[in-house]
Design a protein around this nucleic acid. Structure first.
Lengths: 234, 234
DNA sequence: CACCTTTTGAGAGTTACTCTCAATTCATGC
DNA sequence: GCATGAATTGAGAGTAACTCTCAAAAGGTG
């Protein structure tokens, strides 16, 4: 979860070959047939049009019809590519990358530590490639109820990914209560980190915030007290 | 969060005096004027009608119009009482009770420990008072995307409550990054516990599951390993 | 270039939700 | 009791996000 990453791609009708998760990137899907390339272009066109319109007139004021018109497709097509309006904003294809990075870390490293490294990179990546998008997304996630709601779906998808990784590492079942709650606890904390970042107008460095969050978690939920003014433990 | 408790009551137009959070309970709002009493009765009628219809024909197949008819009010009135259809299902008034219980615990007790005690009681309470409701709710939360989505709103409200309690205990600010992520981490894990419970057909004892979750959390996120087949740490 | 499959657009329909306004219902002072 | 004012309700019209169906268009293949 670079920030609100993760996605509901799972619910998207066509689970795109994802190839290149970043819209603005160079060659949109080189190699595959014309059909595939066109689909990718349409997808990107819809996403870009959406972000542009939302920036111009706000989320609620932007209708799917307008998005369709701006992207030069029919409204039906928009819904074929994204099951809901919120998904146009929230969907991305970072999860597989994240999973890959995570699995590349040494298996005996504590998962929180692995996450720290992986997210550090993801955050940096998101910034160089799509500097505006992360900000707009987190902002919408904080300000627009409908988007925030849909976030849980994203969290859930990323959470399941985490469960699988942890399960493979530890030999436990991915459906273990402990594995699941641990994962969702992490995702919840990280999502809140993104929300905090947005609420404070993106003034802090997201990487630092993530570090602090993970540091707090490994210092321990109710374990040794975290430095606090009153010395009280959490 | 007895299970998916917590609520979006905050977004409800009229923040009811909540008096008696349980619909089936004895005297619906004794003491207050006729107006207030009628409002409470309407609220309960809508909620009960909704649960009945959903049980009979499922969530999606139940329209707000049908709910209105069954509750003998107009559709407009339904929306006046509950901002969204999902809220009819998710809204409850447990949060204030939870907060009260939480504040009644000794301030030097680790918060996870306090939660264990408080939730133990809440779970028991939810069972004796509304045995069916908790099950239906968690089931819907797992099965109906729209309801699950709305959950994040609930989680957020409960999370803020937790933040305030922790802030008061520790002298920190309720908006501290650490306080917030810690809280949402907890809520995320607990919500997942409820989901787990529902997905396994409510066969386990929810209180036990909550105990396991909290035990895992205080044993430590990446701290000493949790007993696991391979001995790997989380 | 013909054949088959996939993708698209057009259009009609459903439903959750919003807004406005007039009618009703409760609360209050006399 | 009853008149006056405030809160609550219902009716109705309107919007916008979806869903479904079907025919047209475009891509892939022999």
């Amino acid at each position: 979860m670079s920030d609100n990453d993760a996605m509901t791609a799972a619910r998207t009708s066509t689970p795109q070959p994802l190839a290149d998760p970043l819209s603005g990137a160079a060659s949109p899907g080189a190699g595959m047939g014309l059909r595939e390339r066109k689909k990718l272009k349409t997808r990107i066109a819809i996403r870009d049009a959406t972000y542009r319109l939302i920036r111009e007139r706000g989320y609620e004021a932007t209708t799917v019809e307008q998005i369709a018109e701006a992207a030069e497709v029919s409204p039906s097509t928009v819904f074929r590519y994204f099951p809901t309006k919120e998904d146009i904003v929230l969907t991305d294809e970072y999860d597989p990358l994240l999973e890959e990075d995570l699995r590349a870390r040494p298996a005996d490293e504590p998962i929180v530590e692995s996450l720290r490294h992986v997210l550090r990179r993801a955050v940096g990546l998101g910034f160089t490639e799509e500097p505006e998008i992360s900000r707009l997304r987190t902002k919408l996630m904080v300000e627009v109820p409908a988007v925030r709601s849909r976030m849980l779906e994203s969290m859930s998808v990323t959470g399941h990914m985490l469960c699988r990784v942890i399960a493979d590492r530890t030999g436990r079942d991915a459906d273990d209560l402990e594995v699941r709650t641990f994962s969702m606890g992490l995702i919840g904390a990280l999502t809140e980190t993104a929300a905090y970042w947005a609420e404070h107008d993106h003034q802090d460095d997201l990487g630092d915030l993530v570090d602090r969050t993970l540091g707090m978690l490994s210092a321990g939920f109710a374990g040794p007290e975290v430095a606090s003014p009153s010395g009280g433990r959490l």
